[in-house]
């Protein structure tokens, strides 16, 4: 059963890794992904606001985590997705997986972040220097990244 947290609080990779290893028992590999607020070329972004659909978000993540646990035989899995305003270089999302071998842990992490980007109801708004703001458009590349897991 994956650990899932959605909310404004930041996370500490060391603490989460220790918790994951405590849950996982006898494993051979852990893999992690952290998403970070980055500046875009030509657009001085100062912060990002993450809005979500409370209730549906947690359900959607729980469903994809359950699929990853089964498909990659994970021993443990932790997913943290932050909401609210996050400054540039701040952490947005953490995916941590534990498995018997590296391939399963690495692939499960990739599977989870690809699906999070297209199937969990979050929306990003960029805050620009000078007080301007704009909603981020969805990327077709994100859909194709998630879709490749359907055929494999």
């Amino acid at each position: 059963m994956a650990f899932i947290r959605v909310g404004p609080e930041d996370f500490d990779l060391g603490q989460e890794m220790a918790a994951l290893r405590g849950e996982a028992g006898d494993i051979g590999a852990v893999a992690s992904f952290i998403g970070i607020v980055r500046g875009a070329a030509g657009a001085p972004i100062t912060a990002m606001t993450l809005e979500h659909y409370p209730g549906m978000t947690e359900r959607a993540i729980a469903r994809m985590a359950a699929e990853a646990e089964m498909r990659f035989a994970l021993s443990a899995c932790r997913i943290i997705h932050r909401t609210g305003c996050i400054p540039i270089a701040g952490q947005i999302v953490l995916v941590l997986t534990a498995a018997g071998h590296r391939k399963a842990a690495l692939e499960a992490t990739s599977f989870l972040i690809d699906w999070l980007k297209v199937a969990a109801p979050f929306w990003k708004k960029e805050h620009l220097a000078g007080g301007m703001e704009r909603w981020v458009d969805a990327q077709a590349a994100d859909d194709s990244a998630a879709a490749r897991w359907q055929s494999s």
């Binding site: 998403g35 993450l50 549906m56 297209v118 199937a119 969990a120 109801p121 929306w123 990003k124 969805a138």
Partner: peptide, 10 residues
């Protein structure tokens, strides 16, 4: 029933 733009999380 909810209406929203395409998702941009992660």
């Amino acid at each position: 029933i909810a209406f929203f733009p395409p998702i941009t999380g992660g």
